Amino acid sequence: MRLSFRLPAAAILVAGFVVPATAQDLRRRPDDPIPAQLETLYERGLSYLAKSQNDEGSWNDQMGSEPGVVGLCTIAFLAHGEDPNYGPYAKNIKKAVEFILSRQRESNGYIGSSMYNHGFATLALAEAYGAVDDPKIAPALKKAVELILNAQSRNASGGWRYTPESRDADTTVSGCQLVALLGARNAGVPVPDEAIKKGLAYMARCRGGDGAYGYTSAGGGKPTLTAIGVTCLALAKEKEGKGFTNSLGYLRDNLNYRDRHYPYYFEYYMSQALFHADEAAWNEWNSKNLRYLSTLQRPDGSWPGNKGESFNTAGALLSLALNYRYLPIYEK
């Protein structure tokens, strides 16, 4: 796999849902203490993203102009409980949302140049809906969801790949679209149950007997891909059955795994998968992840890597965001 938001692409998957503003509660709960080290890392990371954002709402590094990356940065702000209308980062959030909206095609609702971009951008719109005061978000989110559903209807596998016209599928792109659909549904956009079932069925066909997920088949399973599969099942409330149990066991056996090629992609997904499936395993992994990321953060608040500082920083922050649990996605 190659991690890129341009074609061909591999994937990262980050998830977060939003509900209408009347039900959204961004207050920090007193019974969820946040370690000082974590808060320092997160605040420094957000400060970096805010200062390095350009006037059009994107970032100038390697992948920072891709709508999917802008979407991840948007979610990173919201996941910290930042007020998107009046808070210190409100302008940053609104500029990022405007950038995503500007990249949506009027003809069919497609955002960006790949289904990765489209999926992550759709997810960001679902997060922003009901929280950001912008009447353009609702119709844009609806059109984005319709494109995902139409793409699936043309794909015999029931999954998704690089473009809306793709006839094959893989677990990374399919996982991305599934989470976007679930996020949109949680925001109030109608999503047929059958679409979720078909997507999950494709993912299941890529799961080996040991619970590990492969890229396009059940062979060659990896922890990163398995974290995607476990997260999709958990968010869809499909945590019963031998398949889920085997996959969770596989992740437990790989708590010390680090993806050398796509670290921030793996870390966030692993964090979410364990959080929803095994609290003890997540606590152990979360402590290690906090220490690991604290050794890598640069003095300016960014994280290093070959995918660009905006992507790296958003991914690192989102791997820590489960500690805050401001967004409904973090509720079990």
Results as ranks from 00 to 15, higher is better:
A96D: 06
L46V: 04
K136V: 11
L182T: 02
G315Q: 03
K94Y: 10
F99Y: 15
H261K: 15
E165T: 09
V19E: 14
H261E: 14
Y110G: 00
Y86D: 14
D31A: 12
I93S: 07
T171H: 00
E146P: 08
R325E: 06
S174H: 04
F99E: 01
V179Y: 08
T163E: 00
G221R: 02
I12S: 13
Y48W: 15
A187G: 15
L78H: 06
V18D: 15
G208R: 06
G159E: 09
K197S: 09
A50L: 11
G220I: 03
G208N: 03
R103G: 04
S166Y: 01
S113R: 14
V14Y: 15
G308K: 04
Q272G: 00
I228Q: 01
D134I: 07
I228C: 02
Q24A: 13
A218T: 05
R260L: 10
A121N: 08
P67F: 10
A10G: 15
Q104A: 00
G249Y: 08
T245R: 15
H80A: 15
N92H: 11
A236K: 12
L322I: 10
A15F: 09
N306C: 06
Y250H: 07
A321E: 05
N85K: 11
K288F: 06
T40D: 15
Y129W: 13
E238F: 00
D259N: 13
G221I: 12
K332M: 04
Q177F: 05
W282E: 02
A321S: 15
K239Y: 01
M1R: 12
Y269I: 14
S52C: 07
S310Q: 09
N54F: 04
P30E: 12
G308Q: 06
A281S: 13
R29W: 03
T22C: 12
V70G: 10
I12H: 14
H276Y: 12
E279F: 12
G64V: 01
R27E: 07
G81W: 12
G209N: 04
S157G: 02
H276L: 04
D193M: 06
G301E: 00
H80M: 13
N289D: 01
D170K: 11
N283W: 08
V189P: 03
I148F: 09
R6I: 02
T22K: 14
L38W: 04
R29Y: 10
I34E: 05
T40S: 14
A96N: 09
Y86H: 15
R161M: 01
F5E: 02
N256C: 07
Y213Q: 09
N85I: 11
S166I: 01
A124L: 00
Y162I: 04
I228Y: 11
V173T: 15
L3W: 15
E56G: 10
Y264V: 06
T224R: 09
E165D: 06
